[in-house]
Design a protein around this nucleic acid. Structure first.
Lengths: 335, 335
DNA sequence: ACATAGACTGTAATCGATTTCAATAGTTTA
DNA sequence: TAAACTATTGAAATCGATTACAGTCTATGT
């Protein structure tokens, strides 16, 4: 077997009797290389099976062509869809993405941001925030940071997201139009801005129908299917509908309702968020809010790479907001 | 704002009036650095906010501490669970993982393997194979390759996987014990070795009960929920059970059965594979085969990093096979 | 008192590329 | 015919670290 460990540009230069500058010029397609020499170099590279050491190239160019993507957990379908599309786009444009799971930890978020400081990556995409903006801001001097999905009003960086307020507004309005007057509201628990906007939309719909005063049932820590199961049991008797804030929670509630012979939507209407695959498959299928995840992911990557390739300042606030759509299914409407 | 772009070890050396070797020694915790100088260096680093450029370190050490993980698609829950655990383990041991989606393309697989040649990563983990082993083998000279889940009998590298044959054997046996005699078999379509082993297990069970002759219904291209919906309509009349090879396919079949008022399991028993979250939530819940995904992922990362840190040869065949478990649910048993 | 080991520290080479600069040869223009 | 280009090449500096080597100084042993 050929022992081709650690072939360098010097080996190529030696093989074809030229200097390494010339070899480098051929690699980088520079003008002013005689045709015959160029061919000699290409032949030598071919024969040796040489490929440039990209770490050395990274050092010279001060570019890694790697982007860190921070997500809470990749098994959450919302985030894995974001990442799938981001990776596809990045790969097309010659970039790699490095997966970073914060698992909701401030420390891990900072550790991953430090990759910007140590130049392991050229940029960072945040899909959630654990630390205060002022702490994250200090990393801006090392490279661009772009926010996707999550955002912060004070942040002076690009933010690509959907209109969360509209989502919860449309969902809540739909519930009210189905005749519901007492609607429980589920929220996460982190000090997320998404949550804030969603709450605004919820309140806006209630206000429009003069229902604000009678609605004050808020369930917290609503993230997972398990949380949904728990929440089902925490619902007061007089509640007829639940805004869950996530399809997982909705699934949990529906599952537990089935176990307890509570009819959905007759006895309890449930609305999800995200339009995840499962929302269409479960019985009853779940009314939910669709977010154009792939578009958001594409745009995010586009903005990031544009920032990387034009050396413009990275602390400019740009907002790209995508529209959401209400998807009506069985969990909120009688047949 | 502090303009701390591009601080190098030289800046630190200058700041504390020492040579960069001494600074480097402090960074790397070498012995033989006078206590006072060490403190001076630490103070200078602290004050400047210096962090070593890891690309330079990578060049010197010829190690990137990055591992490429090739998966078909990250949105497939099986792969996202693998990746979640791998990333967690890698991160704990100081490694980053780079996500590579082959989307079942030979070319993309080769492109990603080339990251080993250009030293962008220290090692590659394959969770599926698109190319022939002899083509992949040539990359072994550039760094370790470890196979996880998928495998190849000729491959002389570590392989971490579950006992696929046992999985289909247990599942099929279970169906037979429920009284089924004509069982349809779904398979992917790629020349996967997993598929081969599964088929062996299926046949083994049939043979044990002398049912081999009456069973020859094979449905191909069974991967997704959509495939499951299609396959439901392709099933011959006399079939009473389906071995789907994947929970997605099972979900599709169940969904379509519901639409067509076919009772499961009374008129058709369905068995999945993977024990995905959805298999427990759908109605009827799906009997399936559980694979210890997290254990497989952990072991894979452990083996990879061990290979990276001990400079032992990478072309040694080691097999770690984990057991599977039958999970009986509603889709195969009458109440 | 002198050899020797131990504790430090700095100089310079090195990792593998890219790029500036200078040198040379061959053309073209004034 | 000299000046001014253009095309081509290589030597050497550079990116930002680590480390082999050599040198200095101090302490210990005989």
């Amino acid at each position: 077997m050929t022992e081709s460990k650690g072939l360098t540009i010097n080996d190529v230069a030696r093989k074809c009797g030229l200097s390494r500058s010339t070899v480098s010029r051929v690699i980088n397609n520079h003008p002013y290389v005689a045709k015959e020499k160029k061919e000699a170099v290409l032949k030598a590279m071919e024969e040796l099976g040489y490929k440039p050491n990209s770490v050395a190239q990274q050092l010279r160019s001060n570019k890694t062509h790697a982007i860190a993507v921070l997500v809470p957990r990749i098994t959450n379908p919302f985030y894995s869809r974001l990442i799938e599309k981001m990776e596809t786009e990045a790969s097309l444009l010659g970039y790699q993405i490095i997966i970073c799971q914060t698992r909701y930890s401030k420390e891990r978020e900072v550790d991953y941001l430090d990759m910007l400081r140590s130049r392991k990556v050229d940029g960072v995409i945040l899909t959630s925030i654990q630390n205060d903006w002022k702490d994250i801001e200090t990393y801006l001097q090392y490279g661009p940071i772009v926010m996707c999905n999550e955002f912060d009003d004070q942040a002076t960086i690009p933010s690509i997201r959907v209109n969360q307020m509209d989502g919860s507004y449309l969902g809540t309005k739909h519930l009210i139009e189905q005749g519901h007057k007492k609607i429980a509201y589920c929220k996460g628990g982190t000090k997320s801005n998404i949550g804030k906007k969603r709450r605004e939309g919820f309140n806006k719909a209630l206000k429009e129908y003069n229902l604000s005063s009678v609605n004050d049932v808020v369930l917290t820590n609503a993230f997972s299917i398990e949380d949904g199961k728990r929440i089902f049991h925490e619902l007061p008797e007089d509640i007829t509908a639940v805004f869950t804030g996530g399809d997982e929670v909705a699934v949990g509630i529906i599952f537990e309702a089935r176990e307890n012979r509570v009819k959905i939507p007759e006895q309890l209407a449930v609305i999800g968020f995200d339009n995840q695959v499962i929302s269409e498959l479960i019985n009853p299928s779940i009314t939910t809010i669709n977010q154009p995840i792939e578009e958001v992911a594409s745009k995010t990557m586009e903005v990031m790479i544009q920032k990387l390739e034009s050396d413009k300042p990275s602390n400019i606030k740009e907002i790209y907001e995508f529209p959401v759509k209400l998807i009506v299914r069985q969990s909120t409407v009688l047949e």
